[in-house]
Amino acid sequence: MTNQESFIFDTEFHLVVVTGIKARTLPELRTELARISESSVFLHTHQEYLAHDFQPTARYNDFARWVSETLREEPLAEKLAAIDLLAFTSIAKLRDALLRTIDTYLDNLDRPGYQCRPEEAFHFCRSRSFVLPTGLVADDVGDFFKKVPSISHASLHFHFFEARLRLGRQTNDFSRWLTDRGRPDLASAIDGLNPYVRTLDELRRDIVQLGAQT
């Protein structure tokens, strides 16, 4: 992707794999969260951002939603949802933060927690991903901003969310490439766009606008 003249737009496809691991109480969720794969942590904290936005102001990751809707532990759900995903550049650290949040809540819980019905259990899944080139290539910075409007949600998700966190590339792919192409100003501006408070359409629009300002 980077260290090359052209930017190759990739896209990513997911298959969801059911692990068979489930939780019916908060301590069970905590125990399993500590040992599930990183792919599972990523899926349950990020699939929301590829989904249709019915309630854009109340984005809960899968853990927060289950804790809210099934266990009815709303204060914890809020804390889990409030974990700043942008602050992490590795899933291991993100997992630690989730665990710490649950531990603190459990330590202060002065009543027995709820055990949900079997049909309400949290089912841990993981994602199996396939990354493919879309065939879309930007030859230079100007061309890059011309091509961005036509990339798919999946492509944007891959270069912004996955590249940064799951592949440990520290920043999004666009910013890395723009830095290499001698445009750290644009790289920094795009890096400053928080993808977790935007829909993918809004994110793409804002990237295009940054390009238009140059």
Partner: peptide, 29 residues
């Protein structure tokens, strides 16, 4: 989420998955 096109995509991915072992991430570049 629930139209034929999404279902076809998943079956194509399964065919790919059958050929690439059980890795979490396959970079088919």
């Amino acid at each position: 989420n629930f139209l034929t096109t999404r279902h076809i995509r998943d079956y194509l991915l399964l065919m790919l998955a059958m050929e690439h072992g059980d890795m979490d991430l396959s970079l088919l570049t």
